[in-house]
Design a protein around this nucleic acid. Structure first.
Lengths: 345, 345
DNA sequence: TATATTTGTTTAATCGATTAAGCAAATATA
DNA sequence: TATATTTGCTTAATCGATTAAACAAATATA
């Protein structure tokens, strides 16, 4: 039947009447072990269905071959696809990943960090929660001496590797696009200012507005948690203005979706009366009606780069933990929600 | 600055000039250790920022306190929310989870299982990939003697715990609902027959159709991968029939979304000409236009139950691995896409 | 032939925490 | 006071794999 007791090196050693050291080396194809012994060891190992005990070897080698990944949530296409491409790269090098979700909560993020450190991960790749301002827990990772790589939601002050898109330029590009479409009063529902990427998007927005000499009323720039629900609220707020905007650029697709609903509920013609642009290129943006223009963030590429950066740290022994940014260009996908020119009559 | 070397029990023992055993027991509040010693140990432990080495204790105790979770993908609301509630329950009991995605691929699923077993997880909670027919890798988990719990996508033959909704009844309920709305030619775009849950949905559909004496033409029952793209294709196929259906029930929301797009592209009045019902209650179903009726699967409850089932296994030493099904009732959320009566004029 | 090198293996220590067993000192019981 | 029990700690083994060091045997070099 089933061998409940898992077989160990010792079992193999006993059967062949050699030392466990010889068995261990044989399985690692050590050059000092004879071909004959290797063959015999491998044969018995297979017969007994030997599976090395990872805990033992990790303990001995001081390396778990586990990488911790912290994301705000997994049920967004962006994060799930980043994670997936990370996994692909890391698996190839013998690493497994532990995914944890912070749910945008600082408390949960700290717990995750503790849990990952406790599990003795060899490194952590993270995208910070919205709530996170304090960096003490991230400092904790650094002080453990394991590589820390941030993506998308990063933080300069931590002085670690970062992979993301150029939020400032993307934001600038969106405003350019809206201006091109003839919009003149462009609002921005942005994320929390304290979060670096959202701050960059806000700056990109402001600068572009200024460059084009457009109105930059305070009432046109709102700070939001970027949930669908908050997107609704903020859009309602914009609609209640005396001078409504003729375009709204929203720093997150879920919030953009909420905003879209409100616009439709109010029978506002999109994009003619108000044009709409989101951020993140979540699949649903292409599917709703009208489809929402959005920014593709190259999640696969980000995941790949983050994983590769981790691997570089593991290969090069000199742990040069410095701010090393890899910034990708993002791409604006124009859809009906902002394509006024296509609707000229 | 930063203490690169992590502190061990030994360090604490040396400082206090006691044995590591005493330190270990003090930290565990062993009754045989004096209050004075405990206090001293805890003080030093805090000062040195002692973090127990999980690998060492796991190796010694033969228990990693890690639970492996395998899902087809994380970027669906259902799975991400199941995972989240599992995590909540398990964390409370000191377990951490390792999430892996199979991407509906059998090969990837096998790799995940190997990786999890290798990491010495204490148990595995899984939802099977669409592709999976062979059960050999799942047998491997069972033969390792660790608990295996399946949810949503399960398999009777494995004879393990299962948590899910009553797919047959849900499916039956959907047809009832459509009949009530006056539909008479109801098509079903189902998942792969070999997958138990989809098979159940198909049976529920067929039986309900029969009970109501409705036509059950072969052309009205299609098998699909249930991706958005395939939803499009299958809906196009249905539209090309000589006798079009007046309702389509689709076993997955993403496919339902694809179908919805096709219907709209063809200017078909929903629900008047063709009513639409999906499955899974993904958030976007409420957001598209018209909103799609769908089935809520109580993901939070499923995650909680799966986690609790695992914990029961860990508590009760007698590993009674038998088929133990927990079936929840699902709930049909009726929205505009199938609510014909609301559109009577 | 004598010495040096290579080959193939064993011995024993190690990673860090846990725990059964042992033992002395303190306290309780007869 | 003598014996039993409890208290508080130490010793040493253990989990399973890895690896530095040691060593004998085989082979090469002088």
């Amino acid at each position: 039947m089933v061998n409940k007791k898992k077989t160990t090196l010792k079992d193999i050693a006993n059967i062949l009447e050699i030392s466990t050291a010889a068995v261990s080396k044989a399985l690692q194809d050590d050059s000092r072990i004879s071909a004959k012994t290797k063959e015999a060891v491998k044969k018995v190992a297979k017969e007994l269905n030997y599976q090395p005990n990872h805990l033992a070897s990790a303990l001995r080698k001081g390396k778990s071959n586990l990488v911790g990944v912290i994301v705000p949530r997994t049920n967004s296409n962006f994060f799930s696809s980043v994670v997936q491409s990370m996994e692909e790269v890391l698996n190839k090098d013998g690493y497994n990943i532990i995914i944890t979700q912070s749910n945008e909560s600082y408390k949960k993020e700290c717990d995750s960090i503790d849990a990952l450190l406790f599990t003795q991960v060899d490194g952590i790749i993270a995208s910070m929660a919205n709530e996170t301002i304090e960096l003490d827990y991230y400092q904790k990772i650094k002080s453990r001496g394991i590589p820390l790589i941030l993506f998308d939601r990063g933080e300069n002050d931590l002085n670690v590797d970062y992979i993301g898109i150029d939020d400032y330029a993307s934001s600038h590009m969106i405003v350019e696009h809206l201006v091109e479409q003839g919009c003149e009063r462009i609002a921005h529902i942005g994320g929390y200012q304290r979060t670096r990427i959202f701050n960059n998007r806000i700056r990109g927005y402001k600068d572009a507005i200024k460059e084009h000499g457009l109105p930059s009323d305070d009432e046109l720039l709102l700070e939001s948690s970027l949930t669908q629900e908050d997107g609704r609220l903020k859009m309602e707020q914009l609609l209640s203005l005396n001078k409504r905007p003729d375009a709204v650029y929203i720093a997150g697709d879920y919030a953009a979706l909420g905003a879209l609903q409100v616009l439709k509920e109010n029978d506002i013609d999109i994009p003619k009366e108000i044009a709409l642009v989101g951020f993140g290129n979540e699949p649903f943006t292409a599917m709703v009606s009208p489809p929402i223009s959005s920014v593709e963030q190259h999640s696969t590429q980000i995941g790949k780069l983050a994983a590769q950066t981790f691997l570089e740290h593991m290969k090069g022994p000199e742990v040069k933990q410095t701010l090393n940014k890899k910034i990708l260009d993002a791409e604006l996908i124009v859809r009906d929600s902002s394509n006024k020119k296509a609707f000229l009559n």
